[in-house]
């Protein structure tokens, strides 16, 4: 169990984008203003969670490999 968890923690942290409005979820940053702690894996975000901006369900998010503009990560953490 502990070994499994350790292995799981080595997976790279993901970024996802809402295909309904463009809101992004970053596992590293979480969404502290919406009660999701930094480091929360996407699969650990509740299944009934929806985009706080447009209501799109989790299934309407797409994983992306896109970096932040300068200062963008700090803004994203406060979203």
């Amino acid at each position: 169990m502990a070994l499994d968890q350790a292995a799981a923690d080595l997976r790279p942290l993901k970024r996802l984008i809402c295909l309904g409005c463009g809101f992004s979820y970053d596992e590293a940053l979480g969404l502290p203003n919406h009660g999701i702690a930094p480091g929360t894996r996407w699969e650990d975000v509740p299944e009934d969670w929806v985009c706080p901006d447009c209501g799109t369900p989790k299934s309407g998010f797409e994983m992306v490999e896109i970096g932040y503009a300068t200062g963008g990560a700090e803004l994203a953490q406060r979203a």
């Binding site: 984008i17 463009g22 896109i66 970096g67 932040y68 503009a69 200062g71 963008g72 990560a73 994203a76």
Partner: peptide, 10 residues
Amino acid sequence: WFLPAQLYLP
């Protein structure tokens, strides 16, 4: 609609 090259641009 397109994905951007960077997130959180001005």
